[in-house]
């Protein structure tokens, strides 16, 4: 029986879609049959991040309104045979579907997949309600900034009152140099403030921009962000994987060690 995970954040632009794509691809690389669903009606993006924008025929609204069968709308990624995309509609708005319809769709399809990942739109309105309906678990994406953390706190509260109890934090775009200088909150700061379990940390990495430019993923590459996404996927699969401590201000001893190891 598949697990339905919603990827959400409240604030826009913190990396929900990139995270959905990379976790989806990471799980598919681990031989898990995975579907990623874009629920951002009117602002379709997940297909573009995954490089599948030219293959769309039908979309989520078509499936829900009965305009096509699910199989007709699903796009199978040729690079990752275990991965399927259900794209969003570019011309509809949030009211085109309801939470009940989402819940029914997910109940119908979750048995066919190991993981169902839902890319949630920004905000806390109808689109958010649609995206979390039927989810059993969430990944809350934030960056180490006051505005993003504030929105994440609000989202976690809404998830908890909606009955979703397994909510885990993904801290995106950490910059080690700024953390060391005291100009960016540490992983510990953010985790302590939001008080939920930490799923993982993604360093700020220009490889993400380069990959996204080309409609490719970083997971599966040996970039820092790619490795971080891979560890997150293994944690989702239930493995105990350490979260490397990349962010603490370096002590004197560490600095000496780095000096000698040449790292």
């Amino acid at each position: 029986m598949g697990e339905v995970i919603v990827i959400t954040s409240g604030k826009g632009g913190v990396g929900k879609t990139t995270t959905t794509a990379n976790i989806g691809i990471g799980l598919a690389l681990a031989q898990k049959k995975t579907i990623v669903i874009d629920t951002d009606l009117g602002l379709r993006n997940l297909d573009v991040v995954m490089g599948l924008e030219n293959r769309i025929v039908y979309n989520l609204v078509d499936v829900i309104s009965g305009g096509c069968r699910l199989k007709q709308a699903l796009i199978r990624d040729q690079l990752y045979p275990e991965l399927y995309l259900l794209p969003s509609a570019q011309t509809k708005d949030k009211s085109a579907i309801s939470p009940e319809q989402m819940r029914k769709l997910l109940a119908d399809i979750k048995d066919e997949f190991d993981y169902v990942l839902i890319d949630c739109p920004a905000g806390i309105e109808q689109g958010f309600k649609n995206a979390i309906a039927g989810a059993e678990r969430s990944i809350v994406v934030t960056t180490p900034e006051v505005s993003a953390i504030r929105d994440a706190d609000r989202i976690i509260g809404l998830l908890e009152t909606s009955g979703i109890q397994k909510n885990e934090l993904l801290i995106n775009r950490i910059r080690v140099d700024m953390v060391r200088r005291g100009d960016m909150m540490t992983v510990e700061d953010v985790t302590e403030i939001l008080a939920i379990d930490l799923l993982g940390v993604i360093p700020d990495d220009e490889q993400v921009v380069i990959a996204t430019n080309q409609g490719e993923a970083v997971v599966g590459t040996d970039s820092l962000s790619g490795q971080a996404y891979e560890r997150i996927c293994r944690r989702i699969l239930g493995e105990k994987v350490d979260i490397p401590d990349v962010c603490c201000p370096e002590g004197f001893l560490e600095r000496i060690k780095h000096l000698f190891s040449g790292k």
Binding site: R150, G157, G182, D183, M185, I193
Partner: peptide
């Protein structure tokens, strides 16, 4: 003052007013 200290103070105060 490292800007983190100001950020933490602001976010902690914000969350309290948001939550209440």
């Amino acid at each position: 003052v490292p800007s983190v200290r100001i950020a933490k103070e602001r976010i902690v105060n914000l969350l309290v007013t948001d939550r209440l």
